[in-house]
Design a protein around this nucleic acid. Sequence first.
DNA 1: TCCTGCCATCAACATAGATTATAGGCGGGA
DNA 2: TCCCGCCTATAATCTATGTTGATGGCAGGA
Lengths: 247, 247
Amino acid sequence: MNASTGHDGLDVFLRKLLSHSPLPTDDQAAIRALPHSVRHLDANNYILREGDQSGVCPILCSGFAYRQKSTREGGRQIVALKIPGDALDFQSMYVRTIDHNLQALTAVDLVIVALGDFEKLVGDRPAIARAVIVDILIEASIGREWLLNLGRRNALSRLAHLLCELHYRLLDTRSGGLDARDVPMTQEQLADLLGLTPVHINRTVKELERRGAVVRQGRGIRLGDIPQLRLLADFSDTYLHRDAGVP
Amino acid sequence: MNASTGHDGLDVFLRKLLSHSPLPTDDQAAIRALPHSVRHLDANNYILREGDQSGVCPILCSGFAYRQKSTREGGRQIVALKIPGDALDFQSMYVRTIDHNLQALTAVDLVIVALGDFEKLVGDRPAIARAVIVDILIEASIGREWLLNLGRRNALSRLAHLLCELHYRLLDTRSGGLDARDVPMTQEQLADLLGLTPVHINRTVKELERRGAVVRQGRGIRLGDIPQLRLLADFSDTYLHRDAGVP
DNA sequence: TCCTGCCATCAACATAGATTATAGGCGGGA
DNA sequence: TCCCGCCTATAATCTATGTTGATGGCAGGA
């Protein structure tokens, strides 16, 4: 539970926090100084399970992960998508049991911080406490937009919307967004994200390609025409609160 | 911005907080002592609008309200449902602009607290700050369950699920839950809650009635057979965190 | 008391997306 | 280099839910 890796993992996390909340330099140093361990997981592995009581705060430093819930009949829905820099479980500092499953989408590298250490950090440093709350609120806002997506948009718009969101979220921590990078999920995962079936995702991806909104080579999908995607998706990035923190 | 009503409004709010977070008695007194004004609105009126920068923290003390977003094409989705005792906008303490519309579902009575007064309360009293965060996290958890509902359940389950949720949430502040009370929304509002059309809601309500899960007289709907509703809905109340606060 | 408007109801028809099943290709491990 | 397993592709058929439009009733205001 220590093994300082030097720089990388916590740095992405810090960059993510700074993207919406300014922090004094000593707070920044305190974050970088957090004792932690590093952990690698292959795609599809569970990070946390529904019903668990977690003692750690995992932070995603590379790869993608998601929150997921399922129906008794086996329907599976991804309810949140996490990208590098995201903390995966602030919630356990405040609430006893975990209400969803957290799973690796690709191979991931995690930084694991003990919950107690994180609680101390938040208790001692009001600016960090505020940044954590802002982070929680932005995730909630994204959830509301997803509800609109699932409830009121058709397959084509839903997919376009997801791609736009991912692009702009990635822009906050790494340059280029999704522009020159392959979409990291399989068609089955896209289906679980969008409340559709893999078969229909296949049709929909092809339709986006036909319109030139997206370009494919082999299994990879990457963005073609972002303005068109935004139009198809009815996308506006205000819900991401990319300005965010009240000063 | 004062006009102390004596007891009622802030009391429901306090009861709601206590349902998930214990608070020392002086914190409770501080909440009851908050300067505030009272406001009545008729059904369908807006309480806050997307893009606003709010200076107040409205608390719902009677009636129902909802958060709502719409598509460019006019599709309307209710993304959260608020019941008496709920604070309607903690978010504005931490984030600049409002990302959704907040609207009265029935006629409502609001208690309006100045954001600054609320910020001071939260800044001075850690137990209240924690209770506010728990409240935010529970709303987020409900949002995740709604995503599962919209993405992976059919109309009958969705409606049954909504009724169960409302019942158990009401149980936390007033006795009897939804048991002996009419469901407060019209079929059109139910449609906007569940991502369906009013016509299909009509079919679905009738089906629930046929099965005896629900009883109707005139326009009113009330719960008939709660165990059956739970079964149809695949409902479990863990996501409501009715135990919640880590002690 | 009557009028007016919202809300529920119902039917006929249309369609987006689900289901099922089969085939083919790419990539990574041995 | 070959093989195996996962992922994508595609077609045929089915169904849950949407659409449109017409009817009737209850409730609240004048």
